[in-house]
């Protein structure tokens, strides 16, 4: 498969899987404004999925659609970072996961605006506006809850401790990433790390939260080598109608 195809899957699966997770909140948020914001975030991510997986299907050239890729692949073919598929946990864990992703997502999309592949830079131009808003909100919320009550601080620290080992994967390149970088499609992932770490430090300092010392990184989502147990359960729900009634048009 081409580097461009793999690259689009990795972007599209991130937004699909995270968008799905965020959509699980529907109607259950702590306050009405958060119900609206969570639905809005999920909606943006699903919209971006249509673009990335649409381009992946086009590049693949097998006559498939974005829906075929979303609903008819099994877990081993998913290429999202593990961070995106982790369960929602409490609201703090959901917003911490969102922040850790958004910070990376914005850096990535910004770099992709100068991709040599025009179809990629076009998607990045559109998605960056939404992602910047997501980042502003998730950062503010992480700071607000980190620097809130004793309880909210403890919950946010627990969320950071749980999620931080999943951050490193976002910056580890494999052969496909290197090919995409060489072709000018995407930036060198490792080159984003310093900026990310600086932003993370600033946010966590404002949130009175401590970034774990251990830099261990769980990996395997972006390459498809080994997802968490959580992804399969998500797919049983997400893909159920398409699987139970094959060939139907919805």
């Amino acid at each position: 498969m081409s580097a461009l195809f793999e690259f689009c899957l990795r972007m599209g699966d991130n937004t699909l899987v995270l968008g799905h997770r965020v959509s699980e909140w529907c109607g259950h948020a702590p306050v009405l404004e958060e119900d609206i914001a969570l639905a809005n975030t999920a909606l943006d991510l699903i919209g971006q999925t249509q673009l990335w997986l649409g381009l992946a299907a086009e590049v693949q050239g097998e006559g498939k659609s974005a829906d075929d890729l979303a609903f008819l692949r099994d877990a081993w073919d998913f290429r999202n970072a593990l961070l995106c598929e982790l369960p929602n946990g409490d609201f703090g864990q959901t917003l911490m996961r969102q922040y850790l992703f958004d910070e990376w997502h914005c850096m990535m999309l910004n770099a992709l605006r100068s991709s040599t592949e025009k179809r990629v830079s076009d998607i990045a131009d559109k998605a960056i506006k939404e992602a910047s808003y997501h980042l502003e909100r998730s950062r503010d919320t992480v700071i607000g809850l980190g620097d809130g009550t004793t309880e909210s601080h403890a919950r946010m620290q627990a969320a950071l401790d749980y999620l931080y080992p999943y951050v490193g994967e976002l910056f580890v390149a494999d052969g496909h990433d290197e090919a995409a970088t060489k072709a000018g499609i995407a930036p060198d992932l490792a080159s984003l790390r310093d900026g990310y770490d600086a932003a993370l430090s600033a946010t966590m300092a404002a949130a009175m939260l401590t970034i774990p010392d251990d830099k261990f990184a769980h990996k395997g989502g972006r390459t498809g080598r080994m997802h968490t147990e959580h992804l399969g359960h998500m797919l049983t729900q997400m893909q159920w109608l398409q699987r139970a009634y094959p060939g139907a048009s919805w």
Partner: peptide
């Protein structure tokens, strides 16, 4: 409606349903 967002059969249907539920909260 939230009961079906995670089971919506296509990306477009999922997006439309999300937009609708978001409107309702609004």
């Amino acid at each position: 409606e939230g009961n079906w967002i995670t089971r919506a059969p296509t990306l477009e249907r999922k997006a439309i349903l999300l937009a609708k539920v978001q409107d309702e909260a609004g």
